[in-house]
Amino acid sequence: MSQTIAPNDVSLAVDLAGLKLDNPMMTASGTCGYAYEYQDFVDLHTFGAFVTKSISVEVRKGNEAYRIVETRGGMMNAIGLANVGLDAFVKDKLPQLVSMRENGPRIVVNIAGHSITDYVTAAGTISQNISVDAIELNVSCPNVGDGLVFGTDPTMLKKVVAEVRAAMRDDCKLIVKLSPNVGDITKTAGAAVDGGTDILSMINTYTALAIDVNKRRPRIANGTGGLSGPAVRPLAVYLTSRVYREVAKAAGVPIIGMGGIQYWQDAAEFLIAGATGLAVGTALFVDPATPVNVMTGLKEYLAKQGVTDINDIIGTLKMPGDQGF
């Protein structure tokens, strides 16, 4: 702490089980489309990794309007996994996406499905493209009929993870995105690790309900929706800390933390709690340059903390009862 460190001397490079990123900043699936949507607003090359919206085997038109509603400190959405489908994605969207990979972000494709076959088909097909660095499994979308089954049942989760891992290109990493809508998240985290996931990402949105009190009806067409934004941050930080301490650290499986990251302070909390990667979601809707701003703030913070390598702060949380607390 005694010697002065310049913010620009701080290294932000991280290694997620072999997925090497120039910096930990990623996009949260579903908040950044297929990437090109934001290119007028931010230099996407500055991100550590880019994560697409969920791709399903079939075309999905999504839910009826209204699809979102703002609640205090957060937003609820039930988009319904609207996407172009696997074939159109591979043909039309993926080439554009991987073209920014050179000197730019690693490419992560998020996939969703209704069955193990769906997941295996999508992961197998997409991972054939050697520019796809990782596949992220959305096993926890709360806005489609049966999406939560894989995300909440450890036995099912382990099975789908193992089959998807086996179907993928070997050097393509597998990320499992965990649902917070479970009784004990260490169970599902453990199942994903046992199934062979390389990386965990957490969390997906919280199932929530907002009511129009005049009509006495839900405020979004789907009824319930997924809550995201600053309102969920303390909940997400808690779950990240638990999974890191009880599952991920011992297993050597890195965590991508997300949930309400808007400022560098939020990102720092996730790092200290045990996250190696950091994803920005809802805040991208407000300002696509949020990850860049967070990075700038993180460098200043780490310099002030006397830390030259971001990895030195990951998982450094001391809780009551810990040695040295």
């Binding site: 607003f41 988009i79 609207a82 809802t282």
Partner: peptide, 22 residues
């Protein structure tokens, strides 16, 4: 229509438009 981003990303501000293409 209600929208979050305004930049074509969030998929919130949908409207049904006649279209024979896909």
């Amino acid at each position: 229509q209600t929208m979050a981003c305004g930049m074509g990303t969030c998929q919130s501000c949908i409207v049904k438009i006649e279209d024979n293409n896909n």
